[in-house]
Design a binder for these strands. Structure first.
Length: 275
DNA sequence: GCGGGTGTTCACGC
DNA sequence: CGCGTGAACACCCG
């Protein structure tokens, strides 16, 4: 599942590739993945220049010279791919933006849970589509004080449920929630209100260090995720607990990584380190 | 047939 | 009672 680091990787790669190019044609083999009327989308995209790329949470946005933008949500098994025109298109390619440099931007989703949508507001901080979302964890506005305030308001929730809640904080999902809580030595079932100041600070520090490290490695490839160039992310090699059930705890505490279920999600913990 | 993210609805408990 | 919370669905297909 592409989370913040994976979406940010793709956003940065879009800036190096499609930005500055004109969309000469749009092909939509599977219109069902559109959350915008097909004719409207085609009319709004054809002949238009791509002027920027942005990200909000796990959402990827391509900004257009017309003041509109295109939102790609990769959901569970989606990918965006930058490929030469004429190269073989993988099965399940649903939307293709053909560019003026003989390359094309392809949206592909094995599960068809992901979607493509036209936005009238290209500023991701203003677009109503994202108005329900919590703060961007890597933004300057997301301070320790703000995090403490938000935690206080949701004291009854389990901390892992909060990290997964996109309206609480944007872009973190299962991999990074588990890695952050292991880093912070906090058990995922803990009620937010039971966390002391040091624990909240450690979770905050985990968020602010793990996400940038993961971006540096172009994200984590666990199932189907690949970046814009079809390459897997390398951060999976650095996972301390996620997908490491049964392995010894990397803190050498003598415990083993266990898999449980918290907030409805598979959850990896070292129960000796995380209290 | 399971599982995955999201939006929605619905039920529960404080 | 009202709110916060969480559970149950629907969507789809390897």
């Amino acid at each position: 599942v592409p989370e913040l680091p994976e979406a940010e990787t793709i956003k940065r790669q879009l800036e190096q590739t499609v930005v500055g190019h004109i969309i000469v044609r749009v092909e939509i083999p599977v219109p069902r993945v559109l959350h915008t009327d097909q004719e409207v989308l085609e009319a709004e995209l054809a002949g238009v220049t791509i002027i920027g790329a942005a990200r909000r949470g796990k959402n990827i946005v391509v900004q257009l010279s017309t003041g509109k933008a295109v939102l790609f949500h990769l959901m569970i098994a989606g990918s965006l791919l930058y490929k030469p025109v004429g190269s073989e298109r993988l099965r399940n390619t649903q939307v293709v933006l053909v560019l003026d440099n003989d390359y094309e931007l392809r949206f592909r989703d094995l599960r068809k849970f992901g979607y493509v949508k036209l936005l009238d507001e290209p500023d991701v901080l203003k677009a109503p589509e994202f108005s329900h979302m919590g703060p961007e964890p890597l933004s300057p506005e997301f301070t320790l004080d703000l995090f403490k305030e938000l935690i206080d308001k949701r004291s009854r929730s389990k901390i892992k449920a909060l990290l997964l809640d996109q309206s609480f904080i944007a872009g973190i999902w299962n991999i990074y929630a588990d890695e952050i809580l292991f880093f912070a030595r906090v058990h995922p079932e803990r009620a937010a209100g039971s966390l002391d100041e040091e624990e909240v600070t450690r979770i905050y520090d985990g968020i602010r260090s793990i996400l940038p490290n993961a971006i540096e490695e172009r994200g984590s490839s666990i199932a189907s995720y690949v970046d814009l160039f079809g390459e897997p992310g390398k951060y999976s090699e650095f996972h301390e607990v996620f997908n490491r059930t049964g392995e010894p705890c990397p803190r050498s505490c003598g415990g083993k990584i266990e898999k449980t279920k918290v907030a409805g999600r598979g959850t990896h913990i070292c129960s000796r380190c995380q209290k």
